[in-house]
C-alpha cells in the first residue's frame, strides 16, 4: 500500500480513483515521451556510418561530424550564424533593456499601446515581416527615387531584421524582472549621492541582470534559429546554419543535418541550464522561495 502517496492519493481513495490516477500518470508519461523522444532519436542516427538516415546497425562513425566541422559549407554557415547572432544579441539586448526600463517607470504615457507596438514583431507571421523587409531593404528611406543604398543581401540587413524579431523577447523578460523591482531603490541610491550612471551600474543592473541575461539568451536563440528572413533578404554570402539545414533537408538529404542537429541540441541543453540557474538567482534576489 506504500505506492499510494506516490500517486498523490489519500489512503481512502477508491479503486476507480486509483485506476484513473494511474491512467493519468501513464498518459502524462506518454506525452513527455512524445516531447523528448524525437529530439533524442536524432542523436544515435547522427553516428550512423551509412548515408541513410537510420539507426546505426553495426558500424558507428563520426564521419558526419567531420563533415560538419571541416566542410566549408557548414563551417561558413556556423561562422555566419555566430556573427549575425552576436551583433543581434548586443543590439536587441541594449534596445530592449532600455525600453523595458522606460516602460516600467510609473505612469508611463500610453503604456499598453506602446508595449503592443514593441511586441508586435513577435506576433506578425515572419513571412510577412520578411517580405516587407525585402521591399524596404531594396530602397530604404525613400520610396520612389533611385536607392541610396541597398540592405538586401548584406549582413547589416540580416542583423537589423533579426534585432527586430528578437527585441520583443528582451522587452518581455526584462519587464517581468522589473515588476518586482522597488523603484525607491533608485531614489535611495540617488539620495546617497550617486549620479544616475552609478545608480544604473551599481543598483539597477545587478538586480535586473537575470532578466537581461535571459533576454539576451532569447535574442541569441531567435537569431540563431531564424531562417525565413535569411531566405528572403540574405544571399548565399549570409547563409546561416538554419539556412544550411533547410537546404540540407530540401535539396540533398545529407546525414550531416543529424550531426548539426546533435550539436545544436547540446547547445540547447547548455542554454536551458543557464536559464534555470538565472531563474533561481532571480528568485533568490527577489526573496521568493519555491
Amino acid at each position: 500500500m506504500d505506492w499510494l502517496p506516490l500517486l498523490g492519493l489519500p489512503p481512502y481513495a477508491s479503486i476507480a480513483e486509483r485506476a484513473w490516477r494511474l491512467c493519468f500518470f501513464l498518459f502524462c508519461g506518454l506525452v513527455l515521451l512524445f516531447l523528448i523522444s524525437p529530439i533524442l532519436i536524432v542523436i544515435p542516427i547522427s553516428f550512423n556510418d551509412s548515408s541513410f538516415l537510420s539507426f546505426p546497425r553495426d558500424v558507428w562513425s563520426t564521419r558526419w561530424y567531420e563533415d560538419f566541422f571541416f566542410n566549408d559549407r557548414w563551417t561558413t554557415a556556423v561562422k555566419n550564424s555566430v556573427i549575425i547572432a552576436f551583433f543581434t544579441t548586443i543590439l536587441a539586448t541594449t534596445l530592449g533593456t532600455l525600453a523595458a526600463l522606460g516602460l516600467s517607470r510609473p505612469n508611463f504615457p500610453a503604456r499598453a499601446a506602446v508595449m503592443a507596438v514593441l511586441i508586435s514583431p513577435m506576433v506578425v507571421p515572419v513571412v510577412i515581416t520578411a517580405a516587407a523587409l525585402y521591399f524596404f531593404y531594396a530602397n530604404p528611406l525613400v520610396v520612389t527615387a533611385e536607392p541610396a543604398f541597398i540592405l538586401n543581401n548584406t549582413y547589416v540587413g540580416v542583423i537589423l531584421a533579426h534585432t527586430l524579431l528578437a527585441t520583443p523577447f528582451v522587452v518581455i523578460t526584462v519587464t517581468a524582472t522589473l515588476t518586482g523591482f522597488d523603484q525607491s531603490m533608485i531614489r535611495a541610491g540617488a539620495s546617497l549621492g550617486a549620479p544616475p550612471a552609478t545608480v544604473f551600474r551599481k543598483v539597477i543592473l545587478p538586480l535586473i541582470s537575470p532578466g537581461v541575461i535571459s533576454g539576451a539568451l532569447f535574442a541569441f536563440v531567435t537569431s540563431w534559429d531564424e531562417v525565413v528572413v535569411v531566405l528572403f533578404v540574405g544571399s548565399s554570402d549570409q547563409r546561416t546554419l538554419p539556412r544550411q539545414m533547410f537546404s540540407g533537408i530540401r535539396e540533398m538529404i545529407s546525414p550531416t543535418i543529424t550531426a548539426a542537429a546533435t550539436v545544436l541540441i547540446s547547445l540547447a541543453v547548455l542554454m536551458l541550464v543557464t536559464v534555470e540557474l538565472l531563474r533561481r538567482r532571480a528568485e533568490r534576489l527577489r526573496g521568493i522561495r519555491v
Partner: peptide, 25 residues
Amino acid sequence: VMLPFWTSLLVRTTAWFVLLRTEGP
C-alpha cells in the same frame, strides 16, 4: 518540456523529417 522549447525549430523539424520517412525509425 523545456528542452524541446530551447531546441532550434530546424532541429525539431529535422527530427520529424527523419522520424516520419518511409524508411525512418
